[in-house]
Amino acid sequence: MSKHKDSSENRGSKKVGGSKKSDRSSKKSDKKKHRKDDGACEVTRSRVRAHFLDGETGPWARTLAGQSPDSGEQTASTSEAAASEAESGEGGAQSSTARPANRRGPDYSVPSSIDTVADPVLHAISTRRSISKLDPETPSDSDLRELIRTVSSVADHKGLKPWRFVIIRGDDRNRLGEALDEADDVHRKPGEINEKPLRAELLLALVASPQNNPKVPAWEQHATAAGAGHLLELALWQAGWGVMWRSGNLANAPAVRRLHRLKDDELLMGWLYIGAVPERYRQRLAGSTRPLPDPDQFLDTL
């Protein structure tokens, strides 16, 4: 109520002599403030990127968030930039399907209060990339245990926890290569091995393990298992590790299923290849200009 009242009073005051000059001064002050906020956002972005390139992880992001200017000021300038892009036609293509006259799309008139730079969780999500070539260092099994404890918060109808992970290290990777060859009917010369599982020192197989519950169909439990796998990817990324989620047509071939000791109703959803992020990748990220996709293509209303 008070906001609407204040705005109506301000509109009435514009008719009073001398108020136009005051209004212009206020606008100039707002512009200076926004330029200052934009500069603060840029400093924060630079600081975040510098810490990532230096290989620092974990608590540093919370420290950065604490050093950032007031989040409300930052998000105001960020939302203005987004609005400017939309006005300039950079916001993405409109749907080719005509919308009925009485149907409206999402309402973006309220400024966003989200800061994906200063928030450590959102920053990890927006910067995550799949790393195909990994350095040999890996998290310990104790680290994996702690991270998996964390991702068990994934949305899970009835709390069934319908997933499990299988750790694959060392010679077990060669056993996986042999199972993949058997599944693909590949016969190698003596001494030759399937090197695909050797692309990382640590593989983590994700198994969807549905529980018997009449209210939760198997497809929904598979979705929960996939959610746990992706959360683990994000958790590993935030902890400083690179990940590549690989699967393929042979993942649930009989020989591969036997190796992972799968039950009849279980589904192997692939392997997380885990290792250290190579320095060359960190350097490439510093010069990366690849934008995130336009969210409008994923968002609509009924």
Score class of each variant (00 low, 15 high):
His4Lys: 06
Lys5Asn: 08
Ser7Gly: 02
Gly17Asn: 13
Ser19Asn: 13
Lys20Gln: 10
Lys20Ser: 14
Ser22Phe: 09
Ser26Ala: 07
Ser26Asn: 02
Ser26Val: 01
Lys27Ser: 13
Ser29Ala: 11
Lys31Leu: 04
Gly39Ile: 00
Gly39Thr: 04
Cys41His: 12
Cys41Ala: 15
Val43Ile: 02
Val48Ile: 11
Leu53His: 00
Asp54Gln: 06
Gly58Cys: 09
Ala65Asp: 10
Ala65Glu: 07
Ala65Cys: 15
Gly66Ala: 12
Gly66Val: 06
Asp70Ala: 10
Gly72Arg: 15
Gln74Thr: 04
Ser77Thr: 05
Ala82Cys: 04
Ala86Met: 00
Glu87Leu: 10
Gly91Asp: 00
Gly92Cys: 04
Arg104Met: 15
Asp107Ala: 12
Asp107Glu: 07
Tyr108Lys: 03
Ile114Gly: 03
Thr116Ala: 04
Thr116Asn: 11
Ile131Pro: 03
Ser142Lys: 13
Ser142Leu: 13
Leu144Val: 05
Glu146Gly: 08
Ile148Gln: 11
Ile148Pro: 07
Ser153His: 06
Asp156Met: 02
His157Ile: 00
Gly159Leu: 12
Arg164Gly: 09
Ile168Phe: 01
Ile168Asn: 05
Ile168Met: 11
Ala179Met: 10
Asp184Val: 02
His187Trp: 12
Glu195His: 08
Lys196Glu: 05
Pro197His: 04
Leu198Ser: 03
Ala200Arg: 01
Leu202Glu: 13
Ala205Lys: 15
Ala208Gln: 12
Asn212Ile: 03
Asn213Trp: 10
Pro214Asn: 00
Trp219Asp: 14
Trp219Ala: 13
Thr224Pro: 01
Thr224Ser: 09
Gly229Lys: 05
Leu231Val: 04
Ala235Asn: 14
Gln238Tyr: 01
Ala239His: 02
Gly240Arg: 13
Met244Val: 06
Trp245Gln: 13
Ala251Thr: 09
Ala251Asn: 10
Ala253Thr: 14
Arg258Phe: 02
Leu262Cys: 09
Leu268Val: 03
Leu272Lys: 02
Val277Phe: 12
Pro278Glu: 14
Pro278Met: 08
Gln283Ser: 15
Gln283Glu: 15
Gly287Leu: 11
Pro293Tyr: 09
Asp294Tyr: 02
Leu299Arg: 15
Asp300Glu: 07
Asp300Pro: 00
Thr301Ser: 08
Leu302Trp: 02
